[in-house]
Amino acid sequence: MTASGAEAALFWVLAPLMVLAALGLLFARKAVHAAVCVMFVMVGLAILYVAQEAPFLGVVQVVVYTGAVMMLFLFVLMLVGVDSADSLTETIRGQRWLGVLLGLGLVVVLLGVIAQAAFPPAVGLAATEELTNPVALARVLLGDYVLAMEVVGVLLVTAALAGLVLTHRRRLSVRPTQRVLAAARVAALPQGSTLTPLPAPGVYAQNNAMDTPALGPDGEPLPHSVPRVLRIRGQERSATAVLAEEETLVARDDLRLLGVGPAADATVEQVGDPVATGTTDAGATDEGDEDGEVR
């Protein structure tokens, strides 16, 4: 049986891409890239399932594989370390050519077997699915294979428990109490720690973003009030720039209230610029803050 023209087009477009993506799994140095490639293959498979009169499986494929399994892979990759790249030098003698040989041999053998086999004329699933594909599946699954279905359910529960048990870690030290933590903070005072929480970011008339430092009682900006990550990335705005901006805004609002100022749109547009300038300013201050806070 030959497929319809549309299906053939879909296949010939998708199949090479999927093979390429699969090769990406084989050759990508970074595990994350490999995972993305596999995800592509799986989505492609889902599409092919739908094309092959298996819409239910197509949906399940997306939900289970791309949705659950591959996400789990990504989580684990995050845990293990996203950035780590594999060394591709082979350590086991002869393993590389053996692997290549076996891979190619397998392709040849499997294709040979498929080419050799005499398949009956394909009948398609239209006859069996007098209702819909999920219903037809359910009839078989909950009819002939109900016992297997239950057993698989047990297997899933067992696997969930196994995941819990295997990843469970027993505490090796005593859980620190509040008193211990407080004592530790007091003891850390000479190293520049503070007992109180760090100051919140600055709150201004027009601006309460995380990247603006607060002003101390003395009117000086407090660098600690900006989150450390922002400071490291150099995305901190300087308090003076914010203040200057406030000044201009206040002045313009006064004019607008008098009815002589520019349109409100322009003010919005202008807000972005000082940010950019602020970041360039903050670049220098960040260098000094490297050995920064506990924030």
């Binding site: 076996l102 041999g105 397998l106 053998v109 077997v113």
Partner: peptide, 8 residues
């Protein structure tokens, strides 16, 4: 692979 070869 050997099994597949035999089948073939």
């Amino acid at each position: 692979g050997v099994v597949g070869l035999v089948v073939w």
